[in-house]
Amino acid sequence: MQQEKWKQTRQVRFLTAMQRSNHTVTEFILLGFTTDPGMQLGLFVVFLGVYSLTVVGNITLIVLICNDSRLHTPMYFIIGNLSFLDLWYSSIYTPKILVICISENKSISFAGCLCQFFFSAGLGYSECYSLAAMAYDRYVAISKPLLYARVMSIKLCALLVAVSYCGGFINSSIITKKTFSFNFCRENIIDDFFCDLLPLVKLACGEKGGYKFLMYFLLASNVICPAVLILASYLFIIATVLRISSSQGRLKAFSTCSSHLTSVTLYYGSILYIYALPRSSYSFDMDKIVSTFYTVVFPMLNPMIYSLRNKDVKEALNKLLP
């Protein structure tokens, strides 16, 4: 009964959208994960718990870094910026997911979809650049420890963060303008829980050859290039570590990179799965699961990755707590 009602609602909304002018759509319908009320309630509880942990974890890490002078270092400056990005990134998606789970109204306005898309792309690209900046920080710390304080100055750290944001949001502006200049003359139903690039392109009409070139160009410049920089940094790090005679020294050097490597692997792995696989390999059901990971779960895991095995952060937390 519930599913039949939902199908009728979809048909009415679709017909209404088709009756509009050719630039057509004033809202989109986000299908989310399921139409089963019991599962929707369960998902609401899960996502609320994940979002609560994300907010608490990232705010706590930011407060610790600001509050404890021992954490006033280039590495923690960049980690604090990552926590800020993750807090903002998760907040773009999760509140809307929670509404979709408990409400019959699963629509998002055209303007709301555009804003969500713009900030999603901007913050996602900025995170890629920030992870590359942290890889450079680790390279300098391990390969040139005597020059670390001079090379990784506060001015350079602030510049790296500023460039990350500027690069991310400039490229986001380009892809957002191009994406939303299409006529959405097919269904206005997005088979996803947020306004993502691939579902929107599927709904768009018109010539998409140039758009595909732009999409892969931005993928290369914002995801692949930072990934190559990260890989190059770690090749230099490995070469330096292998020259360390003490096994304990090598282990200590690698341990300083383990959190960053974990973060990079999880984030880049999920993004490349979604956007770099051949078209024939796409499955929208699987894509929803993977995109849930990097949009909702990853921002929750990041503060844990950078704090659970970190002695300095644990000591700062003990000092903060009564």
Rank of each mutant, 00 (worst) to 15 (best):
S69E: 13
I289Y: 11
L198F: 14
L43R: 10
C225K: 05
C185V: 02
S263R: 00
S247D: 09
P299W: 03
Q116H: 11
E127R: 12
E4K: 14
L266K: 06
I224Q: 06
L31Y: 06
D86L: 07
L114N: 01
F284Y: 13
Y136W: 13
N302P: 02
A204I: 10
R138L: 15
G42Q: 07
V161W: 09
A121W: 00
L301A: 04
L266N: 01
A204E: 04
T262V: 07
L159K: 12
M1N: 12
G80Y: 12
Q3K: 13
V163C: 02
V223S: 06
Y306W: 15
H260P: 00
A132W: 06
D192G: 09
E187H: 10
I230S: 06
L43V: 04
M1K: 13
A149L: 02
L160G: 07
I78K: 10
L123G: 09
V63W: 07
A227C: 12
S221A: 15
T262A: 08
Y282V: 09
V140D: 07
V56D: 01
S91L: 06
L214R: 01
S181D: 12
A253L: 05
V140N: 02
L85K: 05
L31T: 13
L41N: 07
A149S: 15
L43M: 15
I142G: 05
G210L: 11
F217A: 14
L200G: 01
Y267C: 06
L160M: 14
I190K: 09
V313N: 04
